[in-house]
């Protein structure tokens, strides 16, 4: 398979804090690559570096064949980003937002409309184009936000927790939309805390913790690494690799000993598909 992203010993330090410590991994063209990790593990930092929003302290990376440090403008032409925060202006209408960001990508208003039409119909937002974004619910904003990220018809789409805080219906819509996009050839890098989502969508997964990649592989490959449990889920893999320590200073959560898939950290009902 062709590698569309290569990351080689990427390091990022914020003063004395090392956010990323020589991480290396590749993303293959056309796959959905789940990039998982606890809070503060370095997921968003990695995404920000790969999307040219941050400069690494050391190491190198290529995105769509272009060096992120030497050719940031070329990288930007091939990527779309749905970041943690919604990239839309509340006081502009949905269409004005799309035209503005399309304009920055040197697309005319007509091109923006043509490109958006199919995405917005699919996402159920075609009738809301002339309303100010500030009047939208979070789910509506996120759907416009995704359309914005797709304006340039990017080869690679970075999705940083795209379903965070959304209702199940919108979450379902977005997940199926991600799958559709991927089938049409878009490579997707997905970060999420939702293990069901990650397991359902990802072809391959990387787990990052304390700024280091601790596991990379297909979901099935990673499941085989969990030795002490029958039918492990991706959540079991995640907890085995990253441990039970809560990262916001709350201490350690004890694993349940029933071995089942309850609603505790070991379970979470993560068996089965989302649909």
């Amino acid at each position: 398979m062709e590698k569309i992203i290569t990351v080689n010993k990427l390091t990022k330090k914020f003063k004395k804090f090392t956010a990323l410590n020589e991480i290396s991994f590749d993303v293959e063209k056309g796959e959905i690559f789940g990039f998982l990790g606890p809070n503060g593990a370095g997921k968003s930092t990695t995404i920000r570096i790969l999307t040219t929003l941050l400069t690494p302290t050391a190491g190198s990376a290529t995105v769509a064949g272009f060096d992120i440090i030497k050719e940031p403008d070329e990288v930007r032409k091939h990527i779309g980003l749905v970041a943690e925060k919604i990239i839309l202006y509340d006081h502009l209408t949905a269409m004005e937002n799309l035209e503005f960001f399309g304009g920055l990508n040197h697309l005319s208003g007509q091109e923006v409309r043509n490109r958006c039409e199919r995405w917005l119909k699919r996402l159920g937002m075609a009738e809301w184009l002339d309303s100010q974004v500030g009047t939208f619910s979070t789910g509506m904003k996120q759907r416009i936000n995704i359309a914005r990220a797709l304006l340039t018809e990017p080869a690679i789409l970075f999705l940083d927790e795209p379903t965070l805080g959304l209702d199940p219906q919108t979450t379902y819509m977005i997940r199926t939309f991600i799958e559709e996009l991927n089938k049409q050839g878009t490579t997707i890098i997905l970060t999420t805390h939702d293990m069901i989502e990650a397991e359902a969508l990802s072809n391959r997964v990387a787990i990052i913790d304390h700024g280091k990649i601790t596991a990379v592989g297909t979901v099935e490959e990673l499941k085989k690494t969990v030795k002490n449990k029958k039918n492990p889920t991706l959540e079991d893999v995640f907890l085995t690799v990253t441990g039970f320590e809560v990262r916001d200073g709350a201490g350690k959560v004890q694993p349940q000993s029933n071995g089942g898939h309850g609603h505790g950290p070991m379970g979470g009902g993560s068996k089965g598909r989302i649909r």
């Binding site: 930007r76 032409k77 980003l81 943690e84 925060k85 919604i86 202006y89 960001f101 920055l104 990508n105």
Partner: peptide, 13 residues
């Protein structure tokens, strides 16, 4: 703060 600057910075301008 709102995150919209990322949308501008990620554009090829």
């Amino acid at each position: 703060e709102q995150g919209t600057l990322d949308g501008i910075l990620i554009s090829p301008i």
